[in-house]
Design a protein around this nucleic acid. Structure first.
Lengths: 203, 203, 203, 203
DNA sequence: AATGAATGAGAGTTCATTCAT
DNA sequence: AATGAATGAACTCTCATTCAT
């Protein structure tokens, strides 16, 4: 019967609604203001209703994390048109750090925050993160193949470059770089990319 | 008479006691469970007593942070004996990441946690952090001078290398690297150092 | 269906319940013992429940104040039947002081207590008080018009008479008149009214 | 022996020191900031020391109240030079209300505040207040004798006039007169005095 | 005489969560 | 399916007061 399907679809829509409310609260007001009540208010339902679609707050945060990975993955798609793998590597870093700086609270949730560690317990959830990670990995492997990078272990190269990018943005997001004025951040990110490309890649 | 001195020492010991209780709570239960009440329970005093030694919770966190910087700075002192700046750079990275992995909740508080940002508001507080940062900076400048590193801007090189190290450990500490089994972390850190030295330094 | 109505009524009843508990606590134990927790105990609900009906403690006090003004205003309505403005003036004073002496803690909250001054910040809140004040003002203006009172400035006359009445009852309520035994208070109030009518009004 | 005397004198001086600290805190920061600790800080002794001279906080407040009555009484002494009792009555009112407006927190403690009601339990304490009250009473009796005032009962006249003055200033001090801008208060007080003299006294 | 150290009691408030309807 | 009502368990912080030294 189509009835069950419709119910399924409606259930799905409601979940999306809740998630998008949660996301917009994150971006607008920051983590500490994301409470079940505020989410419920945002969608004009009662707090209890939220619990019909998500087991608890943590589950919502996990779903939001998933959404973030999807979003990041989507942004990475434009990389496909860049032929040269070195250029693509730089662009990949740029996209990553821009995403982080433009969606700080969201990035925070995805990569820094303590709360929803549950997400990584089950391999299924990690799949989404893995896809975005694989984008970087593929580029690095190609860089090695084409002689731009002389790394013995692509896994290590990949993890190192990701760490570098994550390090930069997480230091900014959690305000641990008092030596760099906020208005310079954008410029520092570009300089870091230049520096990395110059030092890491074969000359 | 040594009476005043003794009082001073006892006061100092009480502060240490509170800080160590706070630190051990961090380690055992994580940030969100560190409450004044729990600290008080841990040291078997009343919550009000804690306020005799620290103005508020933030002040405790800041003191803990300070302590951490001091500890890290102390560990960095062994670097002085290493002649070759490239070797010293590697050792510096090793010390930093080892400190982070061996004192995860402490590192978390110092470089990741959201709460005690007050610490960085006043330049005085940052000074302690600055000292440890300057250690790295001095090494990098020497690396550039001696021709091991061809960076146009030492500030950027310094920030990049710090970011790389911070990235690695903060990804581990906040459990964002499911692709790397916990038991490999130690080894990955060494590999990252090798990779970085190989790629960054002049060949 | 009357379901929504019933809900509304129940909500209203709960607010009334809280207010009356607060009021009775005032009467029984005085302002400083009126805490959210005590109110909650009184109505046998949890403290959190109180916050479902009132935003904070101040709001409760304000609501109580409002209620008081309404009550006083209602009592003033009987003045309408008194033709002679001088008689009406006396009756107005009597009603005011009787209300104060019969509802001492309530009067205290409305006119003496320090806490809920927020009430007077927004003109809206003051409106209720203004209504009761206007009753007195209208009478005084009529007294002047009809030649019972020779005041240049009705505002001043009005404020003076209000002050006189407030002075009497607030001295009693806060127990600052040891020269007058409690059992004489009632009688003193009447004498004060007589004296005032005799002295103030044209002879 | 003079030793006991000296001790007595020192004890007395310390009490004065504490009281003057408490008073200055009242005036500078208002009632709610007057805590034992703040008093102790002010005189650079420990909180525990305060308890060597006063049984508890209430006792301090009572002593402060006494001090206030003394101060007011002192201010009233200038009235002696005014020959005409009607003029003296007006001046008495002026002194009273000025004292209240210039030492609001102190007046509050003396005549409005709830806390130190203990003061009036023992007749001894009231004596001080009685002296200031008697000043007014004497003036009014003289006004009646000299024909300025036609009151049957001087007690009632006296109480009425005190109430009027207390009413005015306590309405101001507790901010219950939104219809009168703060900057007009001074002027209103004078107008009230004019009005009262014009209406009450024989024409 | 003076105090450092300590505390019990309690304040207002917030939140995730549950459950009968 | 949706929710209004309710709550337990926390939270940080403040204060008057006591007592061994």
């Amino acid at each position: 019967m189509g009835s069950a399907e419709r119910k399924e679809r409606e259930k799905h829509e409601m979940r999306e609604l809740i998630l998008s409310a949660a996301k917009s609260l994150f971006l607008k007001e920051g983590f500490e203001h994301v409470t079940i009540r505020r989410i419920a208010e945002e969608i004009e339902y009662s707090p209890a209703t939220v619990y019909l679609y998500f087991a608890d707050k943590d589950t919502i945060l996990c779903a939001l994390q998933e959404l973030g990975f999807r979003e990041l993955y989507k942004k990475q798609q434009v990389l496909a048109v860049i032929q040269n793998p070195a250029d693509r590597l730089r662009a990949c870093g740029k996209i990553y750090m821009d995403f982080a700086m433009e969606n700080q609270e969201w990035y925070d949730l995805m990569f820094i925050m303590r709360a929803p560690m549950k997400a990584f317990d089950t391999p299924a959830d990690w799949n989404l993160g893995k896809d975005t990670y694989d984008v970087l990995r593929a580029i690095i492997i190609e860089c090695i193949e084409k002689g731009y990078l002389k790394a013995k272990d692509p896994q290590i190269a990949c993890f190192a470059l990701w760490s570098l990018m994550h390090g930069v943005v997480s230091i900014f997001i959690r305000d641990r770089a008092p030596m760099i004025p906020k208005e310079h951040r954008e410029h520092v990110i570009d300089s870091i990319l230049d520096f990395t490309m110059a030092e890491f890649l074969e000359k």
